[in-house]
């Protein structure tokens, strides 16, 4: 079989396209960075959350880092209520009741066990978990705008 010009042109075009794709995949890109937080039950799954608390509440908080570099994240638990929750711009104006810092590389995640004791009774108490990140350039913790919450009723007799 003789290699004619048309066949050679088609083969060269295929090699050119493959080369362009290879170069495009090599050039460093800056994908949209994000962090994530999620609330899991004590068993580490979605669902099966406690609703009625008469004892220490045990949960797990999932955090993930996709910022493109290592990140120091902090989960901060606060007390809220219906209509009193954080937003994507501002954290809840309440004192933290629990916090846990973790350092994650790009693409890494962690599931952090949480154990809280509610002292007094109440209805529809929002357990709010905010995600903060340490900004090394500013030297301060910055609210990421990511948060999750769980409504619970706290019964009398909680320890």
């Amino acid at each position: 079989m003789v290699l004619d010009d048309e066949v050679l042109a088609v083969l060269t075009a295929i090699v050119t396209v493959a080369s362009a794709i290879g170069i495009a995949s090599l050039i460093p890109r800056n994908p949209e960075p994000f962090v994530a937080i999620g609330l899991l039950s004590e068993r580490g799954v979605i669902g099966g959350y406690p609703r009625l608390l008469g004892e220490p509440v045990r949960l797990r908080v999932f955090v993930a880092n996709h910022l493109g570099e290592v990140a120091m994240l902090k989960v901060v638990a606060k007390l809220g209520a219906r209509g009193r929750l954080p937003t994507s711009e501002a954290p809840l104006d309440a004192p933290p009741v629990w916090e846990r810092a973790v350092i994650l590389g790009h693409g890494q995640n962690a599931t952090i066990p949480v154990q809280l004791v509610v002292e007094r009774e109440g209805l529809n108490v929002a357990l709010v978990f905010e995600l903060w990140a340490y900004d090394a350039s500013r030297g301060a913790w910055v609210y990421t705008g990511r948060w999750c919450h769980l409504y619970v009723n706290v019964t009398r007799g909680a320890p």
Binding site: V97, W98, L116, E119, R120, E121, G122
Partner: peptide, 14 residues
Amino acid sequence: LALPALALLACAAL
């Protein structure tokens, strides 16, 4: 809701 009266104690240090 008597939220101000509610308090949470963290098992871990704050």
